[in-house]
Amino acid sequence: MHGTVSDTDGDRAWVFGYGSLIYKVDFPILDRAEARIDGWARRFWQGSHDHRGTPESPGRVLTLVRSPGTRCRGVAYRVSHEVFDHLDHREKNGYARYRLPMEMLDHEVSTTEGVIYVAEEGNPAWLGPAPIDEMARHIATSEGPSGPNADYLHRLADALRERDEVDEHVFELDRRVRALRGESA
């Protein structure tokens, strides 16, 4: 039966992944579903001082920006509340938790409220928009404790393609970074 539920049922909540949470699930989950949120778009506008770059040379990672009329597809995970300790640490570099409605695409519940991590303008790691070639050069040359910034981008682009999700911002950066690094798609 389809319906609407709260983001919390006792000690559980839904978390929406739109970036590395799509392909790097390093936490226990109770359930998963393909999901979508409306009015938000992925952008490589957030700095990464702790994973894909360093404090002296931050990499570029995703955040969501408000974009009326846009739909962002990702993966929703049902988790126990204790998982938020891990997620808060993982998303600590300028991200805040938001609660937004999600459309569940392959689940018995059609809509629910979920937790989403968003880094907004004004946070200490914010890099903001830049010309696409500048962002590609930045990503192609950045590296941090979690590895090359380009690997984050490529793994995300591949995960989106596997889900038949078209994201021109991600795909254009992926093409340009691969070209800069002499890699094929």
Results as ranks from 00 to 15, higher is better:
H2W: 14
T4R: 13
S6Q: 13
D9M: 11
G10K: 08
W14S: 05
Y18V: 03
L21I: 10
Y23N: 12
K24M: 00
K24N: 08
V25C: 06
V25Q: 10
P28E: 08
I29L: 08
R32V: 05
A33I: 02
A35N: 02
A35P: 00
D38F: 15
G39Y: 02
W40V: 03
G47P: 05
H49A: 12
D50M: 13
H51L: 13
T54M: 04
T54G: 04
E56D: 08
S57H: 12
P58I: 03
P58N: 06
R60A: 06
V61C: 05
L62S: 03
T63C: 06
T63P: 03
T63W: 09
L64N: 06
L64T: 03
V65T: 07
S67I: 09
G69D: 02
A76I: 07
H81P: 00
E82P: 06
F84W: 00
D88C: 04
D88K: 01
K92L: 01
G94K: 01
Y95M: 05
A96D: 10
Y98R: 14
M104F: 10
H107L: 07
V109A: 07
T111G: 10
G114V: 05
V115K: 07
E121I: 09
A125H: 05
A125N: 00
P131G: 07
A136V: 13
E143H: 15
G144Y: 03
G144P: 10
S146F: 12
G147F: 12
P148C: 07
Y152V: 11
R155S: 05
L156W: 04
A157K: 02
A157P: 09
D158W: 13
L160Y: 08
L160C: 02
E162S: 13
V166H: 14
E168G: 14
L173M: 09
D174E: 11
R176Q: 12
V177T: 02
R181M: 09
